[in-house]
Amino acid sequence: MTVKLRLGAVLASGALVLLTACGTDDNSGLPGAVDFSVEGLRCGPGGTLLASGSSAQANAMEVWVNTYQANCEDSQINYKPTGSGAGVQEFLQGTTAFAGSDSLLTESEIDESRGVCRDGGRAMHLPMVAGPIAVAYNLPGVDDLVLDATTLARIFDSDIRRWNDPAIAELNPDADLPAIPITPFHRSDGSGTTDNFTSYLHASAPDAWPYEPDKAWRGKGGQSADGSSGLVGMVQQNEGAISYFELSYAHQNEIDTVAIDTGASEPVRATVENSSNAIAQADIVGEEGDLALELDYATREEGVYPIVLVTYEIACDRGNDPATLGLTRAFLAYTAGEDGQRALREIDYAPISDDIIQRVRDRIDAMD
């Protein structure tokens, strides 16, 4: 069935069932021209599906939920973007069919999942959506800025304090860098975005960034704001500011972003294509069919953007609740399918690479 709907029409009709909530990686605001048309979408059994977790994937979930429901009228999918930690806890408590998480489950959380997944099942990671984390800045007169990992680490650790610092000037010989203070902004709340950004700094510049990656900020100095939207506001309002947030925020708010000197022949920009290239290089490190990924944050490959966030759907490999198994499997099959992955490019997310997403599809088909 083909249903031609756009975001405004769906909102007006009340068909939107993505439940908004406060989360660690709030991401909101879709372009008005998002089209929910899909031809031949395979619907599962009707009913209601509850899920929660990562709010970094909220825009993707909004498109996926509305597309699925527009084509499968007997189904209602409620996804609450409460943040990765809260979503995982709700899944482990058995109150949701699956969870979205920007970080891998711990061993203890996987062990705990055996009490929720029946018949000897356990939680598995299904990488479903990726997104470039842009480094955004407010520097009038400088609309093309290159930085490397060491310089970024020193900036965010308050070691480099002015924009005309020799380390920045060396990377930008043609730029007219002003002698104004740098104001780095980081997340005040625990965040998967912070976890991934600091993973990049620690892997690529361990001497300049000795702190272990964490959802909580570990660097010295700087200022903070709540959520990605809070960081956007701080960058917009403060000349000399620099911060990090999902690429969609930078594009929606027309904020300049940094090109990263990774050691490749050309600096790499934060784009969907360059982020997809990073996912293609990832190694699958999960065991027993689990699809947890390990990213190469220190890559020097051409056209590979190194600061990428992957969101996993966390579900039981077997022993799912029989009452929701069919709908869970059908909805996740759509999100991992060609139509679901194609929709990501239109809203600044990066689809999962072909070889990995095919394994995701196989794991979804095998869910019982």
Score class of each variant (00 low, 15 high):
residue 18 L to A: 12
residue 40 G to I: 11
residue 200 Y to R: 13
residue 6 R to N: 10
residue 219 G to Y: 07
residue 179 A to P: 14
residue 67 T to W: 03
residue 15 A to Y: 08
residue 244 Y to H: 11
residue 141 G to V: 11
residue 160 I to G: 01
residue 265 S to G: 06
residue 334 Y to Q: 06
residue 170 E to H: 12
residue 305 Y to V: 01
residue 122 R to T: 03
residue 15 A to L: 10
residue 27 N to C: 11
residue 241 A to Y: 00
residue 314 I to A: 08
residue 262 T to C: 07
residue 216 A to P: 02
residue 279 I to W: 02
residue 36 F to D: 12
residue 324 T to S: 12
residue 165 D to C: 12
residue 182 I to N: 08
residue 328 T to V: 11
residue 33 A to K: 06
residue 114 R to V: 05
residue 190 G to M: 12
residue 346 E to Y: 01
residue 172 N to W: 11
residue 192 G to M: 01
residue 115 G to A: 02
residue 294 E to Q: 14
residue 34 V to K: 02
residue 277 N to L: 04
residue 84 S to K: 02
residue 329 R to V: 10
residue 10 V to R: 05
residue 268 V to A: 02
residue 188 S to R: 14
residue 222 G to C: 04
residue 359 R to G: 03
residue 322 P to I: 03
residue 174 D to T: 07
residue 356 I to S: 07
residue 236 Q to C: 00
residue 73 E to P: 15
residue 251 H to N: 14
residue 169 A to T: 14
residue 246 E to F: 10
residue 241 A to M: 04
residue 250 A to T: 02
residue 159 D to G: 13
residue 51 A to G: 15
residue 320 N to G: 13
residue 318 R to F: 02
residue 331 F to H: 01
residue 137 Y to A: 03
residue 209 W to Y: 01
residue 64 W to S: 06
residue 176 D to I: 11
residue 215 K to I: 13
residue 287 E to H: 11
residue 293 L to P: 08
residue 9 A to L: 14
residue 119 D to N: 05
residue 249 Y to D: 04
residue 192 G to Q: 09
residue 244 Y to L: 00
residue 274 N to M: 10
residue 362 D to G: 11
residue 156 F to W: 12
residue 220 K to R: 08
residue 327 L to P: 08
residue 217 W to N: 10
residue 81 P to H: 03
residue 30 L to E: 08
residue 130 A to H: 03
residue 116 V to Y: 14
residue 320 N to R: 13
residue 184 P to A: 00
residue 17 V to Y: 02
residue 270 A to M: 10
residue 254 E to T: 05
residue 132 P to M: 00
residue 38 V to P: 04
residue 153 A to P: 04
residue 96 T to M: 02
residue 297 Y to C: 06
residue 106 T to G: 13
residue 112 E to H: 03
residue 113 S to N: 03
residue 361 R to Q: 05
residue 299 T to C: 04
residue 260 I to D: 10
residue 294 E to F: 04
residue 95 T to S: 13
residue 106 T to R: 10
residue 168 I to H: 08
residue 283 D to Y: 06
residue 97 A to I: 06
residue 351 P to V: 15
residue 141 G to P: 06
residue 65 V to G: 00
residue 24 T to C: 09
residue 192 G to A: 09
residue 349 Y to I: 07
residue 325 L to A: 15
residue 305 Y to N: 07
residue 261 D to T: 09
residue 331 F to S: 01
residue 99 A to L: 08
residue 367 M to P: 07
residue 31 P to I: 15
residue 257 T to R: 09
residue 286 G to S: 01
residue 174 D to Q: 13
residue 56 A to V: 15
residue 65 V to H: 01
residue 136 A to P: 07
residue 228 S to V: 06
residue 55 S to M: 05
residue 149 A to P: 01
residue 219 G to N: 11
residue 351 P to T: 15
residue 30 L to F: 05
residue 110 I to V: 13
residue 201 L to R: 08
